[in-house]
Nucleic acid binder design. Structure first.
Length: 869
DNA sequence: TCTCTGCAGAGAGGA
């Protein structure tokens, strides 16, 4: 509630007054309709065809009930679902379930409006689906005038609505496929006060519309006169890219909207065959703080006996674990709960906790099956077999579209950003008077721990009038540079919006800021925020009023939020002096626009030599969707870039490799100590000579060539892996640990998920971090092992595979501090030009290590073991 | 060719 008040910036007291006035009205209505044995049964008018009916509520089944109907492609939230007894004069009363909709606004002409009736009729459709029974009527109640209207669903009304729905769906399809919008309504009276007028007219103009075709005359002109042909082309181009990407994503996303979804269990974004865990009471705890209900589920196979035998996750793994909850769901993900007996989308919630043998889901209300009554101790829940699907409602696309169109609105902020981003006007900088009185600048000169690059980067930020770009090559201390930039900006009393795409990137930065004693506000969902910064969320602050929220905003200069989190009502109407965006090279342009709208200037921090934004659709990628704003501006105005080139991560040898392949000798070691880093073994003894060679501390880079082995990739439907490589990686990892390297100093990376899983089973006894290259961006370890996977008898062109992307190769090569061990087939990999260069370079530096059959004593069963796990 | 993070919601006016 506080959030809405903040967003609408209405007076808190006024709002409370409205609310307090409405409560007794609702209450009176309920009392009147619930009635008692002897009280008079109220009469409701169901329109001319059906007349007056006596109506008595026997139960309020649910409020704010979620109702999704895949069959109709509709979803909604029903104000109240009620069970009633209806009787028309003389006839026997029959019991019904129906939707009740409250309206607060004015009553249109004393008659309920067509729109409101249509809404209720749609609700009856949704409820029919949910309750698996025919629901033929609904109730509309106007609080302002205390009028109750009954709605009896006529078949012709439903047909009309469904036809209208189909028209709309077809228009949307046409717009996204052929970039063709339906014609304007051409009705100034209707359009003048429409909330979508600005966006609507902009789109009309962009798609070739004119003042005449809009039918709106001057109103049209006043909304679009500022748009040039270049602006229109830009909006049209990006709108199309978003369409392409949205289409692609819809194809792969979980098929919860399809009726056969229940049968396909192949998606890893779902958990099936789980049941409620009743071992600790009903496993339903109400967390006191935020009124949420937590339900704990366990695999069905674990019940009933195992769960009672031991507690929590410490139980012996059942063999085989039919479902060890091996899926990609993680804490904070939005999910949908369904039953396998046919109730789809019973409830939606958030993963509160997930382990190998349990998953807890947090719901905003009590879990209830539509068919059952609302008693809290409903045992029918325990009888059900459940499934959890990730809620993949693609809100990111709507954020993209709304960000994009905002850029073309007729206002000062949009106009400024448009000049910079669309027209690519050169950024302006203060002619840097170094000896100025600016305390921020003197502070930066006084900080001893900054190197020359970092200081120049911060000065760039401080002198920027529009924007600054910070190119942070691997290991160059991007984060600490940002921390000092924030400190310097705070000396100028600037307000700062910190952002990045992922929660983890935002929180990483915040943890460093916190260590420096800088106060900040973190906007975001409690579950998704790192625990070290959760105390800075409003959800942890126990705010009692809007005033307290305002107060807190006034105290704090730094606010942090993810790029998609900007839609939070807490940020409505907020303005900042500077927006700093981390990992900007990985964020698509339309997404990055959002946070920039809040600030008068911005700083993008990134490295466009590392992975670009993830784009699913090849067509969208080929047409420029993978070009981040960071990349666009870097290419247009190199003078806006300040590069961090002194790196503190890699030793000389590893850095040289990256310099030779990607950075053109621009990377430097921060100090001689960094340059000469070596792995320290507490003991070096190995029985096999090839492992001795791999561990040789004088070789920072080792390439293990598998060409002499039968080490071919194996393909399983869509994924690729390589069991022999997995085996070699595991052997090396075990040897490293045997020789005294701590397991937390070792990281294993590979392009493919399937290979990561294979390696995980191969090294099962030791706990080493294993991940895809993509997920490892931004991280580092003393020793990194890379499995390239690709290897075949007749190598083909791999330029369109994951290995063909040089950004990914760059990320893989720049994660290791002291030792980089690469495993792959020289013959196959040499087909990728960059990898050919890599192999040549390593050969020059330390030679390629060819392993033979005898070397690794490749017993058939070893590999088979890995292969079958 | 197979890499993957984010994100509520409903509400309303007027010749």
């Amino acid at each position: 509630m506080y959030l809405l008040v903040v967003a609408a910036s209405v007076n808190e007291h006024d709002m409370l007054k409205t609310l307090v006035e409405a409560i007794p009205k609702i209450l009176n209505w309920i009392i009147a309709f619930k009635g008692s044995q002897d009280s008079k049964v109220p009469v409701v008018d169901f329109g001319s065809d059906y007349g007056l009916r006596n109506l008595k509520i026997s139960e309020v089944i649910d409020i704010e009930e979620m109702a999704w109907a895949p069959k109709y492609g509709l979803k909604g939230i029903i104000d109240a679902s009620i069970r009633v007894k209806v009787e028309s004069s003389g006839n026997e009363a029959n019991e019904k379930i129906l939707p009740l909709e409250f309206k607060t606004g004015k009553v249109p002409n004393g008659q309920s409006s067509l729109e409101h009736c249509a809404q209720v009729i749609l609700y009856t459709l949704l409820m029919s689906e949910r309750y698996l029974r025919h629901i033929d009527s609904g109730i509309l109640h106007y609080l302002y005038s205390d009028q109750t209207q009954g709605i009896m669903v006529r078949r012709s009304d439903v047909v009309g609505l469904i036809m209208r729905r189909n028209e709309l769906a077809s228009d949307i399809l046409k717009a996204s496929k052929m970039q063709q919008l339906p014609p304007m309504l051409r009705s100034p009276s209707m359009c003048r006060n429409c909330h979508h007028l600005a966006v609507c007219t902009i789109y009309h103009k962009v798609h070739g519309g004119s003042t005449e075709s809009s039918g709106l005359g001057d109103v049209f002109d006043s909304h679009v006169y500022h748009l040039t042909a270049a602006h229109c082309a830009f909006l049209q181009q990006w709108d199309r890219l978003i369409d392409l990407e949205a289409k692609e994503t819809q194809l792969v996303r979980s098929e919860i909207w399809h009726s056969n979804a229940m049968k396909s269990d192949r998606s890893t974004n779902c958990l099936s065959s789980i049941v409620l865990d009743a071992s600790n009471g009903f496993s339903q705890q109400k967390s006191l703080k935020d009124n949420r209900f937590i339900y704990r589920f366990v695999p069905r196979i674990l019940l009933p006996h195992n769960v009672y035998a031991s507690k929590g996750d410490s139980l012996d793994a059942p063999s085989p674990p039919v479902n060890d909850l091996d899926c990609t769901l993680k804490i904070g993900d939005y999910v949908i709960l369904s039953t396998e007996s046919g109730h789809q989308t019973v409830a939606s919630g958030v993963i509160a906790d997930i382990g190998q043998f349990h998953v807890s889901v947090s719901l905003s209300k009590r879990l209830r099956l539509p068919s059952s009554n609302s008693l809290p101790e409903a045992n029918d829940l325990l009888q059900e077999v459940w499934r959890i699907d990730k809620d993949e409602t693609m809100t990111s696309f709507s954020v993209m579209r709304s960000n994009l169109v905002q850029l073309f609105l007729q206002n000062a902020q949009s106009s400024h950003l448009r000049n910079i981003i669309v027209d690519l006007e050169p950024p302006r900088f203060d002619s840097g008077c170094v000896f100025s009185q600016d305390p921020a600048i003197s502070y930066i000169w006084s900080v001893k721990s900054l190197n020359g690059d970092q200081r120049r980067a911060i000065l760039k930020i401080l002198t920027a009038k529009d924007y600054a770009l910070i190119l942070g090559m691997p290991g160059t201390g991007k984060t600490s540079t940002m921390v000092y930039a924030v400190k310097a900006l705070l000396m100028r009393c600037a307000s700062i919006l910190l952002t990045s795409y992922t929660n983890s990137a935002v929180d990483n930065l915040l943890i460093k800021l916190k260590a420096q004693g800088i106060d900040f506000l973190r906007i975001g969902r409690h579950e998704a925020v790192h625990e070290e910064v959760r105390a800075n969320c409003f959800s942890a602050m126990d705010v009692q009023s809007v005033e307290e929220i305002r107060l807190r905003f006034n105290q704090v200069k730094v606010v942090a939020v993810t790029c998609l989190g900007i839609t939070s009502p807490l940020l409505a109407n907020k303005k900042f002096d500077v927006c700093i965006m981390d990992e900007a090279g990985q964020i698509t342009l339309p997404i990055s626009l959002g946070p920039l709208m809040f600030a008068s200037k911005f700083v993008l921090v990134g490295d466009h030599y590392q992975l670009p934004p993830l784009v699913q659709s090849t067509e969208a990628r080929e047409n420029g969707m993978g070009i981040s704003l960071f990349c666009r501006l870097s290419e247009a105005h190199p003078q806006a870039i300040s590069a961090l080139q002194s790196q503190y991560r890699m030793c000389q040898g590893i850095m040289e490799l990256s310099n030779a392949l990607i950075y053109g000798d621009r990377l430097r070691c921060g100090s001689p100590e960094i340059a000469n880093r070596k792995l320290k073994f507490s003991r070096l003894k190995s029985c096999s000579s090839w492992l001795n060679e791999v561990l040789n501390p004088h070789k920072p880079i080792v390439f293990i060539n598998t060409d002499m082995l039968p080490a071919h990739e194996s393909k399983d439907s869509k994924t690729v892996n390589n069991p022999v490589e997995a085996y070699i990686i595991a052997e090396v990892a075990k040897e490293l640990i045997k020789c005294g390297i701590e397991s937390e100093d070792i990281g294993i990376i590979t392009p493919y998920n399937s290979q990561a899983n294979l390696i995980r089973t191969a090294v099962c006894i030791i706990s080493v971090e294993i991940n895809t290259i993509d997920k490892y961006q931004g991280r580092d370890k003393d020793c990194i092992l890379v499995s390239f996977v690709r290897s075949s008898e007749n190598p083909r062109n791999y330029s369109s595979s994951l290995l063909g992307d040089w950004h990914r190769i760059n990320v893989a090569l720049t994660r290791a501090k002291k030792k980089l061990i690469l495993v792959g087939s020289c013959k196959t990999l040499s087909n990728v030009p960059l990898l050919k260069l890599l192999i040549d370079k390593v050969n020059e530096q330390s030679g390629i290590l060819n392993v033979s059959h005898e070397d690794i004593k490749l017993e058939e069963h070893n590999v088979e073991q890995v292969g079958c796990c």
